[in-house]
Design a binder for these strands. Structure first.
Lengths: 343, 343
DNA sequence: TTTAGCACTCTACAACTATGAGTGCTAATT
DNA sequence: AATTAGCACTCATAGTTGTAGAGTGCTAAA
């Protein structure tokens, strides 16, 4: 997997990758020799490029074109060549400002964050809100909304609010619903949502509850309430990929847009990226989002005050400004974590 | 504005519009004569077509191409030519089934509806959820979430739940929050949200409250809670326009995608469509969404049990299967209304 | 009033031809 | 031994030309 290269080869590869990132055109030997202050002639560069092609780092679209980096080259580039740019003061301020003015709710902040990521990078910004289930239970409430219709509202200590309409077998008057709520609030205080799920199952077995009709109903309803889908995903700036020359082909774009259409599926794929800490980079076919479409994905986790984990990042073409994007994702993840923790 | 046409001209115009809708190719005189069981020769058709062009109903992209309908022609077509297809049993069942299985919450149903609209029409489905403000107040609740942070949860009788995190000047203990909630729930019972807004303002003036620190705080917090943005918009099937040949040009697509990126703006534009009852048809430059991009918009209102009004419809190219789409929008709006009312 | 006929227009398509960017190889140079 | 100049070769791209065909408008006949 790891590639051994002479300093000169590395330098030339770097030049090619960066040139291609900048121009989206195949890079020829003379361009490298000219543009990159080399003391070498084009012919020498050609020899080196032939080697790099042999090693699977470059390909040429056809005989008389220049060469373009392969995925392997990008991989090598981000692993050991790229010089990461610093996040500028202006960018930092922009991220902070836009988070602040977004509003106090978690969703508001995260939505604005995905917007910010998109506008700073000029690619697609994504944020996956922290999963509800490892959040701490704060409050549950039942509201009688109509005959046999109960609205269950579940609040976690993060400020996330989930609500769900439940159809019951018999009509339950509001005063009973209040008692049910009180009972459950006492029972579940301090547990995480996933612990709440277990607890509900356990309680439903217990003898005491078997004979208490009201409480067994309460458990049944709240069981429905805590098993709802809870993850949110924010995708912003999809239209920006239309600017990228490599997607002027309509079919390739279809792939990407279709992938974004089913957010549920996307979510599942992105969950895989949550395992590791720090900035994660997925290049081309490594990305879970769309294997075929030549996109890369840069992500980083962030944490909330209750230690739940979310994901944020950027999706762009494989030919992406990594030196720009990686620090932005890194900084944003740290900032969002800080903001959510001392709020 | 209204166009006087002989029966024959009408018939020919209809044939051209429908042929163009089906094929997206300019329609020639012989095609019309051949395909549409006319007893006329191509030459005669040509004469008529020349007239129609004079009247601004047709244009030719160049001398030796056939002709394509203008916006004016589409307008005339939907106003007085189109033969609306019946919604088939299968389609009806599909709409009902997908609404039913979507879940009980309003958002769930509406989101699924926009999906269904999209897949039935093969264009973009949109649904604007009914505005919260004309909804009836059901319940308000305050939760202490952290120092000086209060989560306000507002429920309407429709089952819509709005929540908002409010930062307070001083820390308010949970028991005070509960009292505040009880006070407000009594005060606002049976009012619509917009009446609630007025009521809050009025109460804040009243002498009684001026001296009651707790209640004036309650009013101040709830004021923030009821002034939140509340409208939701669901847009599904954006990727489908990539299938339409007229959007194979990348720039035209950009227009549309950009329009969808700012949902707030879109919402504002769509609100204009809410004024009239029944199916509304906006063709080309008439559509508020994107004046330049050659799209049409078919909408219809739906109503909830509490008489709030939402909007649903379809966005597609101007060259759209009107005879198909109009009945689908009409039926879906009626069905959703019925579903939301007897639920 | 309708239609056949015809000259005319214009696009789409294919075949062909530079042009030039870029390569790989070889032999000369350092 | 490494580097470079030189050169033949390849291939995509753009431009040119020619042709087929679709469609039109006009005119004169039915």
């Amino acid at each position: 997997m790891d590639v051994e290269l002479s300093p000169r080869s590395r330098q030339i590869l770097e030049a090619i990758v960066e040139d291609y990132i900048a121009t989206a055109e195949p890079v020829g030997s003379s361009t490298v020799a000219r543009r990159h202050a080399m003391t070498l002639s084009a012919a020498t560069v050609r020899n080196v490029m032939a080697n790099l092609e042999e090693m699977g780092l470059l390909t040429s679209p056809h005989t008389s074109a220049g060469r373009i980096p392969t995925e392997k080259a990008y991989r090598f580039y981000v692993d050991s060549l790229v010089a990461l740019r610093q996040v500028t003061r202006e960018e930092k301020q922009m991220i902070i400002r836009r988070c602040r003015q977004a509003g106090a709710g978690l969703s508001d902040i995260l939505k604005e964050t995905s917007r910010t990521l998109s506008s700073l990078s000029n690619y697609i910004g994504i944020v996956v809100a922290p999963s509800f289930i490892s959040d701490v239970f704060r409050h549950i409430e039942f509201l009688h909304l109509g005959t046999r219709r109960v609205l269950a509202i579940l609040v976690s200590s993060n400020g996330s609010v989930q609500n769900r309409l439940v159809e019951t077998e018999e009509d339950i008057p509001q005063e009973d619903l209040v008692r049910m709520g009180n009972y459950l609030n006492d029972l579940m205080q301090g547990l995480t949502i996933s612990q709440v799920r277990e607890r509900i199952l356990k309680e439903m077995q217990s003898e005491k509850v078997q004979y208490d009709h009201l409480m067994s109903r309460a458990l049944r309803i709240s069981q429905q309430a805590v098993t709802m889908e809870d993850e949110e995903i924010f995708v912003e700036g999809q239209a920006r990929i239309l600017d990228q020359p490599e997607f002027s082909d309509v079919r390739r774009m279809q792939d990407i847009f279709r992938a974004f259409e089913q957010k549920g599926h996307l979510l599942q794929l992105l969950n895989r990226c949550m395992t590791a800490e720090g900035v994660q980079i997925y290049i081309g076919s490594e990305t879970p989002v769309s294997r075929s479409a030549g996109v890369s994905l840069i992500t980083s986790r962030f944490v909330t005050s209750s230690n739940t984990v979310g994901l944020l990042g950027i999706i762009g073409p494989t030919r992406m400004g990594y030196s720009n994007v990686i620090p932005i994702v890194d900084y944003t993840a740290r900032l969002v974590s800080r903001l959510l923790n001392d709020a």
